[in-house]
Amino acid sequence: MFESLSDKLESAFKNLKGQGRITELNIASTVKEIRRALVDADVNYKIAKEFTDRVKDKAMGEKVINAISPGQLMTKIVKDELADLMGGQESSFDAKGNPAVILIAGLQGSGKTTFSGKLANYLKTRKGLSPLLVAADVYRPAAIEQLKIIGDQVGVDVYTEEENKNPVSIVQNAV
């Protein structure tokens, strides 16, 4: 996963090898390489720039601790900032209610049907819930068939109204 980004970040930290401490001067090329690595990973420039500005500020603000090499320090700072950028804390998932309703949306081909099966499987096997899959994609009859197959695979019922072309009423009836 993200191998090219990993490799580029690793080589950015290599610049700091052999340096005793971080200085404005020796950090410059590392910061630039980190920014380029992010842009190459398809992060937009503004986000990448803000990211490396923060990394640089943090790195310059750190006290020098002998046991920690500049490379290790940068790795730690970048790790924290990456985690922050991706959301910081783990988020919650609300499946309370009788029934709890989870609406799944997205472009065609993004993986909604597949994910729905996986989520139903997850809720059933890991959370001990009894999910019901509801087919509300009325434009593609094949999509209903696909959902049935996936429901079958994970042992979860699939609710369909194949004559009904109104997704709102299908969902209301199911609930």
């Binding site: 998932f93 609300d94 499946a95 309370k96 209610g97 709890a100 309703v101 989870i102 609406l103 799944i104 949306a105 997205g106 472009l107 081909g109 993004s110 993986g111 909604k112 994910f115 509300a136 997704p167 709102v168 969902v171 209301q172 609930v175």
Partner: peptide, 18 residues
């Protein structure tokens, strides 16, 4: 999708993206 949202007030609305 917005109509469905209004009709059944989901606990979660998940946006799936490739």
């Amino acid at each position: 999708v917005a109509n469905i949202k209004n009709a059944v007030s989901p606990n979660e609305i998940l946006f799936v993206v490739d």
